[in-house]
């Protein structure tokens, strides 16, 4: 059933006759217009990467953060509206600190994911707010559950993943992720794989300049959340771009 012009798609408090809430679907559209974000949960950690389209060459590198740390052991990467994403990150930080103050231990990934999803869900219930125009990839570590990757969506659902992708290039990215062996993949390798996927799904014709931002929680970072060191990211990106050039050269030859 078509949504546009029916009047059933103007508010989150309205169902369409066939039981859909179009405003939530439109919010998801906002994510699909945004830079691709991907994450993997692998052997020794969680790595997340995001493509940041650069709107001006006069921007200072590193601005327009899409990867946010929310506690010592967890971080989120945002696809969709950046400013909405910061609100989610702020909420995640509050949840981390309130859990810590009640239980004196870091919040487990699944608890944080659920609380964050609950938060997003509330914004789908009332006419005076709109759903979040962003999705959050959440990476976390705790001693019981190990490394965890979750995807929290504006509808208020969250699932745990080995590999997840959102944003513009999510279809192609998912296909590429499915080829990875998450049981043997190390984070060092994952950084390269993610860079490769982002470079591949990036649409050169639409957005010329982009930055690659990565965040991980892994053995190498002593189970702390941090941005992947810039030199590693640059190196991975350079390698990915070189590989892509080789491929296209081969295509030309054929």
């Amino acid at each position: 059933m078509t949504s546009i012009g029916t009047g059933y798609d103007l508010s989150t408090t309205t169902y369409s006759p066939d039981g859909r809430v179009f405003q939530i679907e439109y919010a998801q559209k906002a994510i699909e217009n945004s830079g691709t974000a991907i994450g993997v949960s692998c052997k020794d950690g969680v790595v997340m990467a995001v493509e940041k389209v650069v709107v001006s060459k006069m921007l200072v590198p590193g601005t327009m953060r899409r990867a946010h740390l929310v506690d010592h052991h967890s971080g989120v990467v945002i696809s969709g509206l950046i400013s909405d994403g910061r609100q989610l990150a702020t909420r995640a930080r509050d949840e981390c600190s309130s859990y810590k103050s009640v239980y004196d231990s870091p919040i487990p990934g699944h608890v944080l994911a659920e609380r964050l999803a609950n938060f997003a869900h509330v914004y789908t219930l009332y006419a005076y707010v709109r759903p979040f125009g962003c999705a959050a990839l959440l990476g976390a570590h705790d001693d019981i559950n190990g490394y965890q990757l979750y995807l929290v969506e504006p509808s208020g659902v969250s699932y745990r993943y080995f590999g997840a992708a959102v944003g513009k290039g999510k279809q192609a990215a998912k296909t590429a992720l499915e080829k990875l062996d998450f049981k043997t993949l190390t984070c060092r390798e994952a950084v390269k794989e993610l860079a490769k996927i982002i470079v591949d799904v990036h649409d050169e014709t639409k957005d010329k300049l982009y930055e690659l931002e990565m965040c991980w929680v892994c053995e190498e970072s002593k189970n702390k959340s941090q941005l992947v060191p810039q030199d590693l990211v640059d190196e991975a990106r350079k390698a990915a771009e070189a590989a892509q050039d080789d491929d296209s050269d081969m295509d030309d030859d054929e």
């Binding site: 740390l69 929310v70 010592h72 981390c96 600190s97 810590k100 103050s101 941090q226």
Partner: peptide, 15 residues
């Protein structure tokens, strides 16, 4: 300690 640690965590995540 709890209070100061929470403050320092806020500093850490600001990154």
């Amino acid at each position: 300690q709890t209070m100061v640690d929470a403050e320092m965590t806020a500093q850490y995540v600001a990154n």
